[in-house]
Lab assay of single mutants.
Amino acid sequence: KELVLALYDYQEKSPREVTMKKGDILTLLNSTNKDWWKVEVADRQGFVPAAYVKKL
């Protein structure tokens, strides 16, 4: 499975999103959308801005 690194803190703004902290390592589930990537963090799945994460 592919992992991404959170480059910035992100606070979810809708139930479809997830909160992450800078430095978090997240499991990447889907990166087909260039703006929003689906990730899993702490047993929750949701979207984060693609610009806020980097593939490892």
Results as ranks from 00 to 15, higher is better:
D35G: 09
L3W: 14
T27I: 15
I25G: 00
G46P: 00
V4C: 13
R16T: 13
G46V: 04
L28E: 00
Q11W: 13
A42I: 12
K1R: 14
K21V: 10
K55Y: 10
M20E: 01
D35M: 12
G46I: 05
V4P: 00
G46D: 00
E2A: 11
G23Q: 02
V53M: 07
L3F: 15
D35F: 14
Q11T: 14
D35T: 12
N33L: 11
S14I: 04
K34T: 11
P15T: 10
K34L: 11
A6V: 12
V41P: 02
P49S: 02
V41H: 15
I25E: 04
D24P: 00
L7A: 05
R44P: 01
A51T: 13
P15Y: 09
V18P: 01
K13I: 07
V18C: 10
L56E: 04
G46S: 02
K34N: 12
T27M: 13
Y52K: 09
G23M: 04
Y52L: 14
T32H: 10
G23T: 02
E17D: 06
Q45S: 13
L7T: 05
P49I: 03
R44N: 06
M20R: 00
G46H: 02
Y8C: 14
Q45P: 06
L29N: 03
D24M: 14
V53Q: 01
G46Y: 05
E12C: 12
N33K: 08
T27Q: 11
A42V: 12
Y52D: 05
P49W: 04
V18W: 04
G23Y: 05
P49D: 02
D43S: 11
T27L: 14
E17R: 04
D9Y: 04
T19N: 07
G23D: 06
V4W: 07
D43M: 10
R16G: 14
Q45K: 11
K21P: 01
L56V: 12
D43P: 13
E17M: 06
E40I: 09
G23N: 07
L26V: 07
K54W: 10
V53A: 03
E12V: 06
L26I: 08
K38I: 14
V48Q: 00
Y8R: 15
K22A: 13
D43T: 09
D9E: 05
F47D: 05
N30K: 07
M20D: 01
P15H: 10
R44S: 06
L7F: 04
S14P: 04
K21I: 08
A6D: 00
Y52S: 14
K22I: 06
Q45N: 10
E40D: 07
T32N: 13
T32F: 10
E40C: 12
T32D: 15
L7S: 03
S14K: 07
P15D: 12
L29A: 04
M20W: 00
E40W: 06
R16W: 15
N33I: 07
N30V: 10
L5V: 15
V53W: 01
A51D: 12
V48G: 01
